[in-house]
Amino acid sequence: MKTRGALAVGVAVIGLGLALAGLGVNPYVYFAGYVVLQYVVIATAWNVLGGYAGYVNFGTPAFFALGAYTSIFLIEALRAPLPVLILSGGLVAALLGLGIGYLTLRLKGVFFSIATFALSVVLQTLIINWEYVGGAKGYTLIRPPVPFFRSWGVLLFTLMVALAVVTVLVARTIERSWIGRGLAALRDDEDAAECMGVPTLRLKLFATTLSGFFLGVAGAPFPYYVTYVEPSSAFDLNYAVNALAMPMIGGTTTWLGPVIGAVLLGTAQQVATVTISSELNLLIVGVVLVLFVVLAPEGLTGLVRKLRRR
């Protein structure tokens, strides 16, 4: 598939999303669809760093929540409109990404992962103690009348369709460019990559920043979606686990893996939440993650590749 073809598919998906938005089906479809698409963004963004560069980030909640809380701050301070919130949420999270990029200078492998987890908790503590954005009590957003669309649910769903398409297209472009090949080299062996002329630090900074940006973008509309944000919901460990599990299930080396993983696991969770219970669906995520990492470490796309080779 050439880039132009991919763009066309992307536009088609957005068109499809708009069509679905126009249809006016059961509101729950938009509500659940938003969550699945949000996970497409999160899994794809996580995978730019975790899958392409091989740096496992446990701190996904930190970036997501930073997007959400940047929105809250800007709503509170400036009544800023949604596009501004998304861009700002992304940029602030990108800055944090740049920061953890410099951490990679000293911390490799598991130490990096543990540090990102620690970062998430420290950030949560700061937010809990910051009254302006609601502190521990949380923040309630009163949504203004919805512009252009029938309801906020439909608007946010359409928005997430567009964000997911953009994120996936960007990830795909990177994967197939010289940057993607350089990241793959440093994932395989950082010393060897550097000695073969790959500017490893610059590429790592690029990956952490971009990954952070899209994780922040995923979190920015969150206050509008839930209308009540508390630190424990924005910093939910589920984001960290899902961000890992979805690419692992789909396969981490290509853009398709996280998309497949997010759609499958995300949809399964939404269905399970309605039909069984939300606790049980989390158990499913955990079990599926462990099973995949033990039995099919290259994910579904890896399994398909293996079967084809036979």
Partner: peptide
């Protein structure tokens, strides 16, 4: 340019792709 005492190939790439990295970057 140096080679390593213990070979450090890019394990996820084919032999040809291994050469592609230095060709492209250096």
């Amino acid at each position: 340019v140096r080679s390593f005492q213990i070979p450090k190939p890019f394990a996820s790439m084919t032999v040809l792709e291994n050469l592609g990295i230095p060709l492209e970057y250096a």
